[in-house]
């Protein structure tokens, strides 16, 4: 895991597959390392806009008046599932 963190220091982003290749291990191993690092608070998932309640994230719909269901125009609709994968950043 130290090696994994060391690799990320160069500023490039990688997929778990690439990390596995560079660390000469398996994808499963990388995933469990990520799991561990996430729980240890070393890395964290980057929240997507529609994941963080959709409400507070948009400047145009201040607060939760009318409930969070009232989504703001222009923002990602709440129920739209963004198939964007997941990003983790080093804390």
């Amino acid at each position: 895991m130290k090696k994994l963190l060391e690799l990320l220091k160069d500023g490039n982003s990688r997929t778990p597959e690439e990390l596995a290749r560079e660390l000469e291990t398996t994808r499963d191993d990388v995933l469990r390392q990520m799991d561990f690092l996430e729980h240890a608070g070393v890395i964290r998932k980057v929240p997507f806009m529609n994941e963080s309640n959709g409400c507070s994230t948009c400047a145009s719909c201040s607060g939760c008046e009318g409930g969070c269901a009232a989504e703001c125009k222009g923002c990602v609709p709440q129920n739209a599932k963004m198939n964007m994968g997941t990003m983790w950043e080093v804390v």
């Binding site: 690799l7 990320l8 982003s13 997929t15 739209a80 198939n83 964007m84 997941t86 990003m87 080093v90």
Partner: peptide, 23 residues
């Protein structure tokens, strides 16, 4: 300032047409 990230790419899947058109 920049530190690399890990990006897990989602699997490809067929679009859910109903939801897509509603959106």
């Amino acid at each position: 300032d920049r530190c690399g990230m890990i990006m897990e790419l989602p699997p490809y899947h067929k679009p859910k047409w109903g939801a897509l058109f509603r959106y």
